[in-house]
Every structure is written in structure tokens, then in C-alpha cells.
Computed example of a mutant assay.
Amino acid sequence: MPWLSDNLLKHLQSVVEAPDLGATKYRLLEKFAAGGMGTIYLAEDTQLQRRVALKVVHTPETAHALSVRMLREARVIAQLEHPGIVPVHDVGELPDGRVFYVMKLVQGQRLDEYVRHELELPERLRIFQKACEAVAFAHSHGVLHRDLKPENIMVGVFGEVLVMDWGLAKVLSEDAKIVDCESWIVDRAASTQLSTTNNQQPATGNQHQTQHGTVLGTPAYMSPEQKRGEIEQLDQRTDVYALGAILAFLLNPSAAGLAQAQLENNKASASTSLALAKLRAPKQLLAVCTKAMAEDKAQRYESAQALAADVERFLNGLTVSSYQENPFEILWRWIRKFQFMILLVLVYLLVRILLFFWFRP
């Protein structure tokens, strides 16, 4: 048997995995990215003559379960028409049975890459607010993301912010026009994510419910109830916790030890407080992070909107709800907010004093 090089094997594998788009209006251009569930290809819509992103399950052998999950992901995104959520253009099935869906091609950088540039704190906070707006919109439609992290937020070339990868989304509202197929969710096989702690699928009962004890998400940004697999306890405050962790990351991107500190300590509240205390950031924003990442979800912000509102208050020089200022801090914040007017008054008084002594007889 002739020996095959690694490069040749990789090429043969890519050929086998490449989707056959002959029966569609799309023309395959190149492989764009790969994840635990499927591969994203750069493709061309031959009718509209535009480039799009086409996502398809890796191989036909795993098509059944993952195709159901991918179809569900497409349906979730299709119900969330928001500038901060990538729109789905089309969905279909390949001759080998694999489901694919087509979405807008996003050109930009992931948030964890984008913040490597020298960004001022207000710019980072504005990006965070836009992400909160998209998440709040999803919550208003009864959808939890459950896998919020910097890697799943894209910043476009024109400053647009988009929340990506809704593959682990959970539908809460009963009237949502989405089929909840969570029993089909499988291990994403990503090094930064937890695999399921109970791999046996139920033989009886409702097949559209995730089993208790199933852990889905990225550990560093998962709330305590999500880590414990308490599916019935998940609500919008679960995503608020992840947003708080993202905010902590944005406050000091070079000190990415917050997530790791949480992973190495089973006591979420203790490790979170310890890690936040080490961040160099305004006390008000650290208090916002602490509240968003409270171990008890009842102590967190009620919504992503409330979290974003506190960040907006900080940007506007106002007090935030999560931090009790002392009199000196109130005075200093007031001086910083009106520093220009205070400077004008001081200059005016100085000129009056100089004129008084100059024309003094």
C-alpha cells in the first residue's frame, strides 16, 4: 500500500467534507472556519451575485443529530431580526442529508482579537453596550444564548457589533416559533467547553428536554447554575452573568486571569471577587461586574438592559446602582464631570484678582 503524506490526507479529508452545492444556487469558494458542530465556508450566491457564509455539518456520518441541531440554530437566528445578530438568508439540505444554512458574511474581528488594539475604555464599553442590546433583544423573544464570550462577539470593519454562534441557545417562551430540539445536542468537542456529564439519551419521556445534569457552554463564562446543570433554573440572568465576565475581560484584556481563576476554584463567588479585585479598573465598573456575576442569580441585574444602563450611567459621569459612593468620590466625580466649567470659573476669578491688583491705586 503506497504511503500517503499528512498533507495529502488532509487534502483528501477536506475534499470528502466539502459540501456538494451542485443542486443549490451557491458556489463554494473556500473554507472559512470550523467549529465543534459544523464548518463555515465562503460561498457565492450566484443569483444575487454576493458573497455569503454557508454553514454545514462536518461529515454525513454525523448528519442526523447535528443537522437537527443546526436547523434549530438557523430557526433561532431567523426569529431574531436585530442589527446585532447575523441574519439568516436561506436553509436547505444537501444530497447526502446534511442540513446547511446561509447567513450574512461578517467581515471583522472577534472581540478577543479586536481589543488587542489600543482601545480607550469608553470605546470598549460602547462595544459592550451594543452586545448587551443584542442579547436583550433575544431575551425579549424568549431566547437565551448560553455561550456568550468574547470569541462569540464580532466587531465589524465599520464598528458594528454582532453576537454570533447561537448553537446552544435555549428557548424559554412558549409561543416562540422555534422547535426546541435540545435532546439532540451533542458534545462540541472544543477544548474551552465542557462536555456533557450525562451522555445517555432518555429512552422514554419528552425528547425535547435537556436532561438534568447536562452542562453546556464555555466554563469560564458560565454561571454557577449553568455549571451545575440546573437547566430549569436558567433564565436571562444566566446570560447576564456571562456579560459580566465579558465586561471584566474588557476592563483589562491583558489580565485574562479572571476566567481561569474561576475555573480553578469551585467557589464561584470567592474566586470571582478575588479575580475582580486584581483588575485595574474604576471601582464603579468593578462593582458592576461583581453584581452581574453574583453567585446568587437573585443578586444579579434583572436584565441585560439594566446592566447596559449602569454602564451608560458610568460613561455619563453618573453614579451606578451597584456602587455606594462616599462623599469624596461624589465630589471627585462631580469635578470630573464639570471640569471644563470649573476651569472657566477659576480662570475668570484669577483674571478678576489680577485686574484688581493691577488697577489698584
Results as ranks from 00 to 15, higher is better:
Tyr301Trp: 01
Pro60Arg: 12
Gln305Ser: 06
Glu93Leu: 01
Arg72Pro: 08
Gly35Ala: 11
Leu274Lys: 12
Val171Glu: 11
Leu94Arg: 09
Asp96Gly: 09
Leu286Val: 14
Trp3Tyr: 12
Leu251Glu: 01
Glu118His: 05
Arg126Ala: 08
Ala255His: 07
Arg360Lys: 15
Leu354Thr: 10
Val351Ile: 10
Ala169Val: 03
Thr46Val: 11
Val135Thr: 08
Leu355Asp: 07
Gln49Pro: 01
Gln107Trp: 04
Asp96Pro: 08
Pro202Gln: 05
Leu71Lys: 15
Arg126Val: 09
Gly229Phe: 03
Leu28Cys: 06
Gly35Pro: 09
Leu279Cys: 07
Gln129Trp: 00
Leu172Asn: 08
Pro150Glu: 00
Val15Leu: 10
Gly156Thr: 14
Val345Gln: 07
His145Met: 05
Gln79Val: 09
Lys170His: 13
Ile178Arg: 10
Pro150Met: 00
Leu216Trp: 09
Glu151Asn: 04
Val311Ile: 15
Arg50Ala: 07
Asn198Gly: 11
Val99Asn: 07
Arg50Cys: 09
Ser183Arg: 09
Glu325Tyr: 12
Ala220Ile: 05
Arg27Glu: 15
Leu354Val: 13
Phe314Val: 09
Thr204Ser: 07
Ala281Thr: 05
Gln211Tyr: 04
Ala78Phe: 04
Glu81Val: 10
Met293Leu: 06
Leu162Val: 13
Pro19Leu: 09
His89Gln: 11
Thr192Lys: 02
Gln236Arg: 14
Gln107Val: 12
Met37Thr: 14
His208Ile: 00
His89Pro: 05
Leu251Gly: 03
Pro60Ala: 12
Thr210Val: 12
Leu28Ser: 06
Leu343Ala: 14
Asn152Met: 06
Lys177Asp: 15
Cys289Ala: 04
Arg313Pro: 08
Glu30Ala: 13
Leu144Thr: 07
Gln47Met: 13
Val157His: 07
Pro253Gly: 03
Phe357Trp: 08
Asn206Cys: 08
Tyr101Arg: 05
His139Pro: 00
Trp332Glu: 13
Ala131Gln: 00
Val186Arg: 12
Leu234Arg: 11
Asn198Trp: 11
Lys31Tyr: 01
Val163Cys: 00
Phe338Ser: 05
Arg237Ala: 11
Arg313Lys: 15
Glu120Met: 01
Val88Ile: 06
Ala248Ser: 14
Pro282His: 10
Lys337His: 01
Arg69Pro: 02
Asn7Leu: 09
Arg188Asp: 05
Gly97Val: 01
Gly38Val: 02
Leu234Pro: 10
Asp187Phe: 10
Val52Ser: 08
Gly257Thr: 10
Asp187Pro: 10
Lys337Cys: 00
Asn266Trp: 03
Gln211Asp: 06
Ile127Cys: 00
Arg69Lys: 12
Ser67Met: 10
Asp235Ser: 01
Asn266Asp: 05
Asn199Glu: 02
Asn265His: 15
Arg110Ala: 01
Leu355Phe: 03
Tyr348Trp: 09
Asn152Ala: 10
Arg146Phe: 02
Gln339Gly: 04
Gln201Phe: 14
Arg72Ser: 12
His212Ser: 04
Pro122Asp: 02
Gln193Phe: 13
Lys267Ser: 15
Val215Lys: 11
Gly205Leu: 06
Val143Gln: 05
Leu247Thr: 01
Thr59Arg: 02
Glu160His: 13
Leu250His: 00
Leu194Trp: 03
Val16Pro: 00
Met103Val: 03
Gly22Asp: 12
Gln236Pro: 04
Leu71Asn: 13
Leu355Cys: 04
His212Met: 07
Asp235Gln: 02
Trp184Gln: 13
Leu318Cys: 06
Gln299Ala: 08
Val135Phe: 02
Arg360Asp: 14
Gln201Lys: 10
Phe32Val: 13
